[in-house]
Design a protein around this nucleic acid. Structure first.
Length: 750
RNA sequence: GCGCGCUUAGCUCAGUUGGUAGAGCAUCGUCUUGACGUGACGAGGGUCGUAGGUUCGAAUCCUGCAGCGCGCACCA
């Protein structure tokens, strides 16, 4: 017990008490920051030191630290600290993400709740001002939280996805793509979120299985084909009936045209044959609504069918009879069904399960609508200007999709775990043009100006009167896609040149849910703009769930706040609990018991240190001649030599094993081995066996034990540092001869 | 429909290239031994989802099946 402990000469008093994370962590972090070593420019390294670089996946600026981000920070800091100890010019670059839609939605909700005003009441300028204020507050909170985790980020290079340098990068990227014809403006069916009043990309849709009614009916008595639909109200916009080309039932009708009045709306239908129709679904015939279905729109393109919008941005009908027109789609649906019944056209009404599309951010029911939007053409051939990617020759034709595929297929970028590679390829196969314009106000404004029929894309507004800039902003992932190099100075040639050694970045570590949103978009942007990959290795971590395996969500209220855990158990314990046993890409459960176990471990390390320091207080290596105990073979003078050699051998082979794990991204194994060695070998075996040696009156025996245990402790402290930086740094300062140096810049033991 | 993952001790999960199973927590027993009771020592507990195959040998490789989960597509 603490009160039994007597002060030992040479042992700092803090070792007379259990390890105090609260009283240690902030002080240690301050010392690190003051040293400047988070910035690789300040590391004292030979000029040929290899660079290591990694960007922090910028957290949403309005977000709070959650266990997922805590895990991300823990893994990335382990990597960075390890590389720094290995003598790399280690750069871990921080930033925050403006997260366009997400942020605007948060602030809009807040204003709506507090003042009952919508964004339209405030106007663009005022809303942006409000968001700016909100963001600067939340920014400081999240940055502070990252420091609490011990993240050794180079704060001097902190970036924001919406700051001026990043905005220039975005405009530059947009213009280059525009000039190459890879960005175009087109009137196409897009995913419209009526709730958020904006378009969203295919990846921002979530699917939910719901029960709904499938109606089978005829458009009119004289039209001989019945069709099935879950959305009768959209049928006012039908311009064709599609059947499978091989379906014998409808052969004679293909090519025929019919006219009718459907729920008050005149319609004109052509019977077409298309492979996309499934013979066995419903009646085998399908009403084609080019304006309100992505699939139908594609079919309409193939058959040159007219586009007929019948629903507006607010999800209301713009055509139809009384009770349909101006009504919301759900109301209109009932009215149309009633009309079908009245006219004896409804044949069947059955309940089925189907997927509905919801906007990820707002939960709004997606309404496919034709709109004039900006797109990135992923399949359009163009001539690549530069390339360092094998298989991609500068000056030859390629497509963005092809480049994205090759970047990974060539091995220029590898993904850990490698099963994600398949997922990545699968996504690329199904990739369609990327809709990048958004009708929200918070974000990078599309750098295009209009005057009458003139369209002008440039970095700045064109000269002359009457030009009006595009109202839309860009998908937040457009700017995130530039992140690995927009944070290194690009497009400013001189600034980028200075940081050139850090690109491609060595590693990208991120959540597996961002593989499409972010990883793929980064590869797209970087291969196109720089002709190189954004990173050599992608390491993906999985979702962190609660202790019952449920997703962490606000509605469940099951969020464990990492800051509470840090206050209770220390950041080192939180970090360990998020790393040990969590393989790449696999889901994990966060359990307070596990965090507690590593707090106990921290204390164990503390006590090991106390024990060794207490027993070596009279051992002054520097003052006495170095004992070369390995070579003293006189059994009688030094009976423990064999045991000592065995201890040393076991320690060094464990270290080697751990080094191999670290080099191969097996942090979860390295951490576990360190834990196991420290507790069950060093503490349980070696220290127990060393007790009689310490009290031996054979001076050689005693000195050799002291020398060896100090050496093991010193090296073990370094090896533990990437995982548990605070306690190890604190211990380091108490080890003989280290009072002036920082552990974070020592050399990894080999 | 296509693809992927998981299934190991009561619970949560490790097991990196195949050599007859490990950790944490939980349970039980012993120990006021001067680093630590936030501890030590020890015990119980698993036919590694299932059926086959390859192999001298498989939790580990292959195939089928089942349950759970995920991604993509479809969703008229």
């Amino acid at each position: 017990m603490a009160d039994n402990l007597k002060p030992v000469p040479g042992l700092p008093d803090k070792f007379l008490k259990p390890y105090d994370s609260v009283g240690t962590e902030d002080r240690v972090y301050e010392a690190w920051e003051k040293s400047g070593f988070f910035n690789p420019d300040n590391l004292k390294l030979p000029s040929d030191a290899k660079p290591f670089s990694m960007v922090l996946p910028p957290p949403n600026v309005t977000g709070q630290l959650h266990m997922g981000s805590a895990m991300m920070l823990a893994i990335e800091d382990v990597l960075t600290r390890y590389k720094r100890l290995r003598g790399y010019r280690a750069l871990w670059l921080p930033g925050t993400d403006h997260a366009a839609i997400a942020t605007q939605v948060v602030v809009e909700k807040k204003i709506q709740k507090e003042e009952g005003k919508s964004r339209y009441d405030l106007g663009r300028e005022e809303l942006l001002r409000r968001i700016g204020t909100h963001v600067s507050e939340t920014h400081d909170v999240i940055i502070k939280q990252m420091r609490k985790m011990g993240a050794s980020l180079d704060w001097s290079r902190e970036a924001f996805t919406l700051d001026e340098p990043r905005n220039l990068a975005v405009r530059t990227a947009f213009k280059r793509m525009y000039d190459d014809g890879l960005i175009y403006r087109g009137y196409r069916v897009v995913n419209w979120d009526p709730k958020g009043q904006t378009t969203i990309s295919d990846d921002e849709i979530e699917y939910e299985t719901r029960k709904t009614k499938l109606y089978t009916f005829k458009y009119a008595a004289h039209i001989p084909i019945s069709i099935s639909t879950t959305r009768p109200e959209t049928k006012l916009g039908d311009t064709a009936i599609a059947v499978h080309p091989d379906d014998p039932r409808y052969q004679a009708l293909i090519g025929q045209e019919f006219e009718a009045t459907f729920a008050g709306e005149p319609i004109k239908l052509k019977v077409i044959a298309d492979q996309a129709v499934e013979k066995d679904f419903g009646t085998g015939a399908l009403g084609v609504t080019p304006a309100h279905s992505m699939i139908d729109w594609e079919m309409a393109e193939r058959h040159h069918l007219p586009l007929k919008p019948v629903i507006n941005e607010y999800g209301k009908m713009i055509v139809g009879q009384e009770g349909v027109r101006d009504k919301k789609t759900t109301e209109a649906r009932e009215a149309v069904v009633a009309w079908l019944k009245e006219n004896g056209l409804l044949e069947k009404e059955e309940e089925i399960e189907h997927n509905v599309s919801l906007a990820q951010r707002t939960g709004g029911l997606i309404e496919p609508l034709p709109k004039l939007q900006w797109f990135v053409a992923v399949n359009k051939p163009f001539k690549l200007k530069h390339s360092s990617i094998p298989g991609l020759v500068a000056g030859t034709e390629t497509t963005l999709k092809e480049m994205m595929k090759l970047a990974v297929a060539s091995g220029e970028t590898s993904i850990i775990p490698d099963r994600f590679q398949k997922i990545y390829f699968n996504w690329i196969e199904n990739l369609r043009d990327w809709c990048v314009s958004r009708q929200i106000w918070y974000g990078h404004r599309v750098p295009v100006w209009y005057r009458g029929q003139e369209v002008h894309c440039d970095l700045i507004a064109p000269d002359g009167e009457g030009w009006r800039q595009d109202e839309d902003t860009l998908d937040t992932w457009f700017s995130s896609g530039l992140w690995t190099f927009s944070t290194l100075g690009w497009p400013d040639e001189a600034a980028f040149e200075k940081m050139r050694q850090y690109h491609p970045t060595t590693v990208l570590e991120t959540g597996s849910d961002l593989i499409f949103f972010w990883v793929a978009r980064m590869i797209l942007m970087t291969t196109y703009l720089l002709g190189e990959v954004p990173f050599r290795t992608v390491y993906m971590h999985g979702l962190v769930r609660d202790n019952k395996g449920r997703k962490i969500s606000k509605s469940l209220g099951n969020n464990i706040d990492p800051l509470d855990m840090i206050a209770k158990y220390g950041a080192d314990a939180v970090r360990m609990s998020l790393i040990v046993g969590v393989g790449p890409g696999s889901e994990s459960k966060i359990d307070e018991q596990k965090i507690k176990a590593y707090k106990l471990f921290a204390n164990k390390i503390w006590n090991i240190t106390r024990f060794i320091l207490t027993n070596t207080a009279d051992f002054k290596k520097a003052q006495s001649p170095v004992i070369d105990w390995r070579n003293i073979e006189n059994q009688e003078a030094y009976p423990s030599r064999k045991i000592h050699l065995a201890w040393l051998q076991e320690f060094e082979s464990t270290l080697q094993d751990i080094t191999t794990d670290m080099e191969n991204f097996r942090f979860y194994l390295a951490a576990e081995k360190l834990y196991h060695y420290t507790w069950h070998t060093l503490a349980d075996k070696i220290l127990e066996e060393s007790k009689p040696m310490f009290s031996s009156n054979n001076p050689l025996e005693k000195a050799a034990t002291q020398d060896l245990l100090l050496s093991i402790l010193t090296r073990l402290t370094i090896a533990l540092h990437p995982f548990m930086p605070f306690i190890t740094e604190e211990i380091w300062s108490a080890l003989p001869g280290n009072d002036q140096s920082l552990l974070m810049v020592q050399h990894w033991p080999e």
